[in-house]
Design a protein around this nucleic acid. Structure first.
Lengths: 209, 209
DNA sequence: TAGATTGTTAATCGATTAACAATC
DNA sequence: TAGATTGTTAATCGATTAACAATC
């Protein structure tokens, strides 16, 4: 739990994972220092913006020198909260749910998929890559008993909102929503939408410009 | 091909698919008219913003009355360019590629998945839901010969940029990128990123606020 | 010390909201 | 006509960029 004086804007927050990606990469490639100018060129931002962004959280650089890659990376890791693990569940063991359950990007990042849920008796009781598939009836019990902090929602559109209601009622505070639907959730519950159709239609728009 | 006098801002463009979703839903539910105020309440925007957004493209309402749902829906459909079909390919027939190949959100929307590509000899030559899985060696030939306008990229990170290069060289002008990597593409090629890891880390940030 | 680059304040730019005349 | 709601201009708010003093 961290708390910052200034309210950090969503624009900045949305850029944080990108900072993390680039700094992680620089660190892996053995870079020791980087200036805001160099990082800006790399990321397609301006040096000014990078300094403003970072200073929403604190002063991580050294005047006349720049930023130590490793230190800045670690700072971002802490800011993002990925210095600790998160217990997650995937709801809906269809193709998408299964794809996410072994998504390469999560590896070694503290995202722990504890279970998947479905109603299909063909799937329930089985296991995929060591992740058990449980029946939807067991959802509330599992969420309560396993310290689950993130629910990844991959159910059909028709039961999207209903399932979200169950998740929220069970006290889960974060939903990654793959259902092409804007969820209505109580105050304090975070929803991050990944809407593949919306993204595709943005693309068709841009194609016709 | 449409062309507008004023340059429409990305903020507006990103909201268009959402307008489409809501208007489609209203239309299906038999609503005939809607005011900017009513739509705003529904979508969590302001009436003013909706009127500004729509007026980037033209005047679709009637003073004193509001907007005819069907007409406005059709206008948005045209603006998004989804009044015509798009030939697409999915590159990478892993779990994610396969999930997207029968994603429910695309049904009846003119998104035609013409082929999937992979290097795995276990997969190549087979078919999934009528979509053939071809070898990566055939990519350029297929893109050129089948009027493909959108490539959906679901390959491993390591070959993401290389594959994007091949796509661009073949003349494809739109890439939906699921690879957790910022692609470097020539001027005029549209990239829409769906970065699941970035979204998840945004969520972990918000959880720790 | 001189040069470089940060942290931060001020200026600009763009997006959202408010207001209201036009008009259905 | 009177009431309602648009289209559009003006005002505000927020985010990005520029500038520069602080300082390593």
């Amino acid at each position: 739990m961290q708390s910052y004086a200034k309210k950090v804007s969503m624009s900045v927050v949305k850029r944080l994972p990108k900072y993390y990606r680039y700094l992680n990469d620089l660190s892996e490639r053995g870079f020791e220092k980087i200036s805001s100018k160099e990082l800006a060129d790399l990321m397609g931002l301006t040096a000014s913006q990078i300094r403003q962004d970072l200073n929403s959280f604190g002063a991580y650089g050294q005047q006349g020198y720049g930023y130590k890659v490793e230190d800045l990376k670690n700072a971002i890791v802490k800011i993002l909260g990925i210095d600790r693990p998160y217990n997650c569940v995937i709801i809906g063991a269809g193709n998408l749910g299964r794809a996410i359950s072994h998504y390469e990007g999560f590896k070694n990042q503290g995202i722990r998929i504890k279970a998947m849920f479905d109603i299909d008796s063909q799937k329930v009781g089985k296991s995929r890559d060591g992740i058990p598939i449980l029946h939807m009836d067991q959802l509330e019990e599992f969420l309560a008993g396993n310290n689950i902090s993130i629910a990844i929602l991959c159910v059909p559109r028709t039961i999207g909102q209903g399932t979200a209601n169950r998740i929220c009622k069970a006290g889960v505070k974060a939903i990654m929503n793959f259902v092409p639907l804007d969820l209505d959730v109580p105050e304090g519950v975070m929803v991050e939408n990944v809407n593949i159709t919306d993204s595709l239609f943005t693309l068709t728009y841009l194609l016709n410009e």
